[in-house]
Simulated scan of single mutants.
Amino acid sequence: MTLHGQTFVVTGAASGIGAATAALLRDAGAEVIGVDRNTAADFRGVFVQADLSSAEGVAAVAEQIPERIDGLLNIAGVPGTAPWRLVLSVNVFGVRDLTRALLPKLVPGGVVVNLASNVANGWAERRDQVIAFTSTADREAALDLVGADPEITGNSYRFSKECVRWLSLEAASSALGKARVVSVSPGPVQTPILEDFKVDHGRDKVEGAVALLGRAGQPADIAHAIGFLVSPEAAWIHGTDVCVDGGLSAHRAAADSLSVTA
């Protein structure tokens, strides 16, 4: 993969999947603008320390991005162990607002990759709630809209990634013929927040999934998939979700189907 002369914005670039993706893109010859609320030691490229949990933070990032970029990779995310308003602010509105701010800066044929999750596979079951939430322009008004729903506030990470799935489809539709938008849905990945996922989603469930697969995913596993999606070889992949979970979703879907027909 060769990406010489191209520039990519990578959020969440200080650690985990974001750091692995930034490194892969740099090794392929790209210029990388890293964005993270945490500092990144020895970051090779331009680094913007910023907080995507507020509209002001997103605007501050957008102002520092050059007028021509080849891609935006929305990888930054907050686990469900954080307060639900913070989870939704970063994972949903950070993605929505930064994408809308930077889409005009994408070169023709540029690409946006949003990090979703395989926990969002059932997003269409809450389609109406997802659309109502993500289409509310004011963040605080949107958060107030769902604040009384324990199914959302108690499962804020899952709901946030369901929103990412929809936002990816919505942006892909609006960008037809101009840019590509895809989402990537990992399973359990060995990152600094894997322990948070065990607490949020259930330790037995997450560790059982890892045991079933033989190992947890590694940040590089996801980074290589993202690297392919931003490459010229993926030029006809647009408006879809790419599941990168070692087959976990397929196993669960098959097991559920077999239990119904048994």
Rank of each mutant, 00 (worst) to 15 (best):
G12F: 01
G12I: 07
A13P: 01
A14M: 09
A14N: 11
A14D: 12
S15L: 11
S15M: 12
S15D: 13
S15I: 06
S15V: 12
G16H: 00
G16R: 04
G16C: 01
G16K: 05
G16E: 01
I17E: 05
I17V: 14
I17R: 12
G18W: 09
G18K: 11
G18E: 12
G18V: 09
A19W: 09
A20N: 09
A20C: 05
A20D: 04
A20Y: 11
T21W: 13
T21A: 10
A22Y: 11
A22V: 06
A23T: 14
A23M: 10
L24C: 03
L25K: 08
L25I: 07
L25P: 00
L25C: 06
R26K: 12
R26L: 09
D27G: 03
D27C: 08
D27Q: 14
A28S: 14
A28Y: 09
A28R: 15
A28P: 01
G29I: 11
G29P: 03
G29T: 10
E31R: 14
E31T: 15
E31A: 15
E31M: 11
V32C: 02
V32Y: 03
V32T: 00
V32E: 00
I33E: 05
I33P: 02
I33N: 04
G34V: 05
G34T: 06
G34N: 05
G34W: 12
G34D: 05
V35L: 10
D36A: 06
R37C: 03
R37N: 09
R37A: 04
N38R: 15
N38Q: 15
N38A: 15
T39S: 14
T39N: 11
A40P: 02
A40E: 08
A40H: 10
A41L: 04
D42K: 13
D42M: 02
D42H: 13
D42P: 04
D42F: 00
D42L: 03
D42V: 02
D42I: 02
F43L: 03
F43G: 03
F43E: 07
R44M: 05
R44S: 13
G45K: 08
G45C: 00
V46K: 15
V46N: 08
V46T: 15
F47Y: 15
F47K: 11
F47P: 01
F47H: 12
F47R: 10
F47G: 00
V48K: 02
V48M: 00
V48Q: 05
A50S: 08
A50V: 04
A50C: 04
D51R: 00
D51C: 00
L52R: 04
L52F: 07
L52W: 07
L52E: 06
S53G: 10
S53F: 04
S53E: 00
S53C: 03
S53H: 01
S53K: 01
S54E: 04
S54Q: 06
A55R: 14
A55D: 15
A55M: 10
